[in-house]
Design a binder for these strands. Structure first.
Lengths: 240, 240
DNA sequence: ATAATAAATGTATTTTTTACATTTTATAAA
DNA sequence: TTTATAAAATGTAAAAAATACATTTATTAT
C-alpha cells in the first residue's frame, strides 16, 4: 500500500494488478415472526455445488452495483418486498470459506412482516420458512451467519424498536410482548412490559380490537414513527 | 442466484462468470489515546491517485488471505503491533466509492496503546497521529469511516471493556476516567466513576503509584482479564 | 345466567443512578 | 520544620428505574 521513503510515486493501479480481484456476494438472513416464533427464510439450492442443501438466499454483487443494493435486489426477487428493515451484519471473509473460488460475503439481516410478502414468489424460488429453533444445517458458513444474526438481533432489539418490524402495522400488546419473548428467548412479565412500552409514548391506541385470540379481544396499536423520532432527537433512548 | 422451477440445475460457477470480480480492500481506523485525547493514525499517501492527501491505512485483501488477516497485516506493517484489539466496523460497498476501479472496503477499527507501537516504523511510512477533534479531510469515504468508527466506539465502550485497550497495562483511575471522557465526549463524576469500575471487581490494585501528574501520586491498577471472563460467564455485564 | 379465558391493571420493594463536598497524601517552597 | 499546593481518594442521601407479584374486567360460548 505504500512505497519506501524516497522511491518515486507510482500509480496505485499499476502497483496492484496482482490479480487480487475476487467475488463479492451478499447473503440475506431474513427473519419473520409467526405464532410466537421467530422464523427464518431458507432456500433449497437448485444449483451445484450443494444442490439440494439448505442455504441462505444470496447473490453475487454486480460489478456496478452497491453492496446494499444487491441485498435489496435479492430480497425483492424472493419476497417481492422493498423498503424493509435490513442492515449489515458482518463480512464473512475467510480465504477458504467457499471451496469453489475466492468469494467473500457480506451478511445482511432483514426483518419482514409475515403477512406482507409474496407467497407465490417465495414458493417459486423454493424458499421455505423455518422456525429458528429447528433449523437444518446450512451450506458453507451460513450456520454461523444465522447464529451471528440471532445474537445481533438480540442485542440490537434492546435499544432500537426492531420488534415492530416483525409485526403488522396494527398489533396488540400481547403480540408485541410475544415478539420480544421470541427475540430474547425469555418470558417477560406482562405488567412490567406494558409499563415500559407505554412509558415511551410511541404507541397509538386504536379503537379496534383483535379478537382472534380471546373472547374479550385485545386493543390494536400502531407504532408512531414520528413520536419515536422526536424521542431520540431529544436524546432519550428507547430501551425494551 | 436461482433458476426457474423445472429448469435443470447448472453448476453455479459457470452461471456466474460474468466478470463480477472486484477488488476487496480493508482500511484500518487506528485509535490511540494521549494526554486526554483520542488520536487517530493517518497516512500521507505517497502514491497516485490522491498523492499527498491524508488517508486511512489500508491494503487490498490478497486473493488467498482472510479479510481479518489483511487488516492485521496492515496494522503490523505500520505499527509493528500484533494481537491488538481490532474489530470489523462495516463494509463500504458503494459502486462508485473509488473513482479508479470497483473496490469495496471493509473498515476495521483498532485500539492501540500509544507507548507500545514502533515509532520508527510509523514514521517511515509517513503515518502521523492526529487528534480526533482536529482531523484533516481524508480521501474517498474515509471521513465517513472515521465518523462511523467514533460512533461505534462510543456505543461499544459502554458494554465492553474497550477503554483498557487504549491504556498501558498499568494505569491509574484518573487515567481510565480520562479515556472514557474522551470516548464519550462528556465529563464524568470521579466518585461515581470509581464506584462503578470497582463494582465489577475486575481491577487489581498494585503497590506502585504514578507520580507524574501529582505530588501525592495515584495508585496503579491492572485489568484482570480472568476476572472479567468469569464475570461475563456468570451472565453479568460490564457497563461503564 | 354462568362458565371460561385472555386482557388489562397497580403497588410495594429492591436496585441502580445521580448529585454533590471534604479529607488525604506527597512534594516543593518558605 | 513548617506550610502551601494540588491532585487523589472517599461517602451519603435522594431520585429514578427495575423487579416481583395477584386480581379484576370484558367478551363469548354454553
Amino acid at each position: 500500500m505504500y512505497k519506501e521513503k524516497g522511491e518515486p510515486a507510482i500509480p496505485l493501479r499499476d502497483a496492484y494488478q496482482h490479480d487480487h480481484k475476487m467475488y463479492v456476494a451478499t447473503d440475506c438472513i431474513i427473519f419473520g415472526f409467526d405464532a410466537g416464533n421467530l422464523k427464518l427464510l431458507l432456500f433449497k439450492r437448485r444449483v451445484a455445488p450443494f444442490q439440494g442443501d439448505w442455504s441462505l438466499i444470496g447473490s453475487f454483487v454486480k460489478i456496478d452495483e452497491d453492496v446494499s443494493a444487491a441485498a435489496e435486489r435479492v430480497l425483492e426477487e424472493i419476497t417481492g418486498l422493498r423498503d424493509v428493515f435490513m442492515e449489515e451484519l458482518k463480512t464473512y471473509g475467510a480465504a477458504n470459506r467457499d471451496p469453489g473460488f475466492r468469494c467473500i460475503s457480506i451478511g445482511q439481516y432483514a426483518l419482514i412482516r409475515l403477512n406482507d410478502y409474496d407467497k407465490e414468489l417465495v414458493e417459486q424460488h423454493g424458499a421455505v420458512w423455518h422456525d429458528v429453533k429447528e433449523l437444518p444445517s446450512l451450506v458453507l458458513d451460513h450456520d454461523q451467519m444465522v447464529q451471528d444474526a440471532l445474537k445481533k438481533l438480540k442485542q440490537k432489539a434492546r435499544y432500537q424498536p426492531l420488534g415492530f418490524e416483525l409485526l403488522p402495522e396494527k398489533f396488540t400488546i400481547p403480540q408485541l410482548q410475544s415478539v420480544y419473548e421470541a427475540i430474547y428467548q425469555k418470558e417477560l412479565d406482562s405488567r412490567n412490559f406494558r409499563k415500559k412500552v407505554f412509558s415511551y409514548n410511541v404507541l397509538v391506541k386504536l379503537e379496534e380490537k383483535d379478537k382472534s385470540t380471546s373472547k374479550r379481544g385485545a386493543f390494536l396499536y400502531k407504532f408512531d414513527h414520528n413520536r419515536y423520532k422526536r424521542l431520540t432527537e431529544r436524546g432519550y433512548n428507547f430501551e425494551i
